[in-house]
Nucleic acid binder design. Structure first.
Length: 519
RNA sequence: GCCAGGGUAGCUCAGUGGUAGAGCAGGGGACUCAUAAGCCCUUGGUCGGGAGUUCAACUCUCCCCCCUGGCACCA
């Protein structure tokens, strides 16, 4: 039986600056999805990486007296390190300076050219070196000294006439509209789709896709004076990583199931990318999901406001699992989300430590003390037992899966936390500490049911908190090969008598430093 | 300016033409297996403002205010 394929990508990160929490957020979101799909029986390929070309990188390198490649190597290492530090399980980390990637870019370029979609023309206009962008007259402000600057970015512009290759994006307006029509789930969340549609309906202009003002990039085939402009280069990573045009992985995993990206680059993925692919005669990705940004107190994080949450600080404070959990929990995926240490600490303590962690701890410690440190022998199950087991079994998996299909990670968490809450209610109702004296056999049944619920919870939480999940499953002696979602539910329930290791807490409470010391 | 989506308890949000909901936070209680955790109960909102339709609107219509996003080459 061959598994269905699932290919998921993040955007590639531009190596002009070091990674911040937003990069971690996207990588973790994709990782949570990738892990879920693997556990749910898919053959997953998960790609992330770095975008390393362009004038900004060239200039930043120069400013530091480095070669662009050396500079890119250093920053790319930071991004790759950040992914590792959050236990992001990507199958590949692509860098656009890799040789195979450049070849793939040139290949797709030729394909688009053969299709008659690329032509040489002169681009004339006001150009900002700093922004690497042309501006229209209406976007400029003339200073008292007669010089012009971009009104938006305040950067100086100069009149440039540059030969450039263009892509006939205008020819794809109708086909793109048809795509959004036929495949409504192509662009998500749905309000993004509407934005894209209304944008395309205005009509599309051809796209300048080469530059001659710098060298750091992929040369245009047949005319190396030209360097491919950012999007042909960057977007192609999604197929070059798979070995396009004829790699095995390309045949296996393309078209992509989800491109996970930030909301700022939706246009490139929902408009340019499918147009390029159509031109090159390639299948289109099934879905583009634009997530929101993380804010602090409703404001963008910025160094000047001093409200930056650095990836490494977060891990130092909470550890990897709780950090991943907090990021996926606080914001509704797709919308902007407010995060702050107080909010995240409260969430981690309430849900991971108090609710779920304590459930595991109190149950296993009772089993350890009162059941000879073995999976207890259950008797006849009562309705309360069956109800709880039912909630924690297939029903929970189905509910969580439903939220994953919509990439609603926060909702998925709510589903299993509510099961954990139900289990805590059950303990209090059953009061096994009383049964210990009055009805030891019934106590064993109750503890068995709880252990089994914990097994199921351990399975389902893996995408979010992979390390803690393993520890929990270790503590209820779930064999290593029984840890995917096919083992959720009663068919694979714990076997009575299995020896259990001594329990140890997995989700410690976070104690925030007391801010105000008594003066 | 134009287009879209929002403004519901301290916070994050769900919700329906017919007496306002959840989680967290706050308050109280019973218990004690457990990570001073868990469980139960509870305070709390004129559902952005105004007008209209209706037996009845938070839910429909209109006007206004405020917020967010989009409006082309901006990683």
């Amino acid at each position: 039986m061959t598994k269905p394929h699932f290919y998921i990508t993040t955007a590639i990160s531009y190596v002009n600056a070091a990674p911040h929490i937003g990069h971690a957020y996207e990588a973790i979101g994709a990782d949570v999805m990738a892990r879920f799909k693997r556990l749910d029986g898919y053959d997953v390929y998960f790609l992330t990486g770095t975008d390393e070309h362009g004038q900004k990188v060239e200039k930043s390198a120069q400013a530091q007296g480095k070669k662009p490649q050396q500079f890119a190597d250093e920053i790319a290492a930071l991004f790759e390190g950040m992914c590792k530090s959050f236990d992001v399980s990507n199958d590949q980390f692509i860098r656009t300076t890799a040789d195979f990637h450049k070849k793939a870019c040139q290949h797709i370029w030729k394909k688009m050219e053969e299709n008659g979609d690329i032509y040489l023309h002169t681009y004339a206009g006001w150009y900002s070196m700093r922004d690497e962008a042309f501006y229209g007259e209406d976007e400029l402000t003339t200073l008292p000294d007669g010089k012009k600057i971009s009104t938006e970015s305040k950067t100086p512009v100069e009149w440039v006439e540059e030969e450039s290759y263009f892509f006939k994006l205008s020819a794809y307006t109708d086909r793109l509209l048809k795509l959004y029509e036929d495949q409504p789930e192509f662009m998500q969340p749905s309000f993004r789709r509407n934005e894209v549609v209304s944008f395309v309906k205005q009509g599309l202009k051809d796209l300048s896709i080469s530059r001659t003002t710098f060298d750091w990039g992929v040369p245009v085939p047949g005319n190396p004076k030209h360097i491919m402009y950012v999007w042909v280069d960057a977007l192609t990573n999604y197929i070059s990583a798979l070995g396009y045009p004829d790699g095995e992985n390309f045949k296996k995993y393309w078209p992509c199931d989800v491109h996970l990206i930030g909301k700022d680059i939706i246009r490139f993925h929902a408009i340019y990318w499918p147009a390029f692919l159509m031109s090159a005669g390639l299948p289109l990705p099934k879905r583009v999901f634009g997530h929101g940004f993380l804010l602090t107190a409703g404001e963008k994080m910025s160094k000047s406001l001093g409200n930056v949450i650095a990836p490494r600080d977060m891990i130092d404070k909470y550890g990897v699992d709780a950090s991943r959990y907090a990021l996926m929990r606080e914001a509704t995926f797709g919308q902007d989300g407010d995060i702050s240490y107080p909010l995240m600490t409260a969430r981690i303590n309430a849900e991971l430590a108090n609710n779920l962690g304590n459930l595991v701890q109190r149950t296993l410690s009772m089993i350890n003390k009162n059941c000879d440190a073995k999976v207890p022998q259950p008797g006849i199950l009562e309705d309360a037992d069956k109800d709880l087991l039912q909630k924690a079994g297939q029903a929970m998996l189905i509910a969580v899966r439903g939220e994953f299909e919509k990439m609603q990670f926060s909702r998925a968490i709510e589903e299993f936390i509510s099961v954990s809450h139900a289990a805590n209610m059950y303990i209090d109702e059953q009061a096994p500490w009383t049964l210990k004296k009055t009805d030891p056999a019934r106590m064993a049944t109750v503890l068995y049911v709880l252990a089994e619920v914990i097994r199921n919870l351990g399975l389902i939480i893996q995408p979010f908190v992979p390390n803690a999940a393993q520890k929990i499953m270790d503590q209820v002696a779930v064999p290593a090969h029984e840890r995917d979602f096919s083992f959720i539910g009663e068919a694979h329930a714990l076997k009575a008598g299995t020896p259990l290791p001594a329990p140890a807490g997995v989700f410690p409470r976070i104690v925030d430093e007391v801010v105000a010391k008594t003066a």
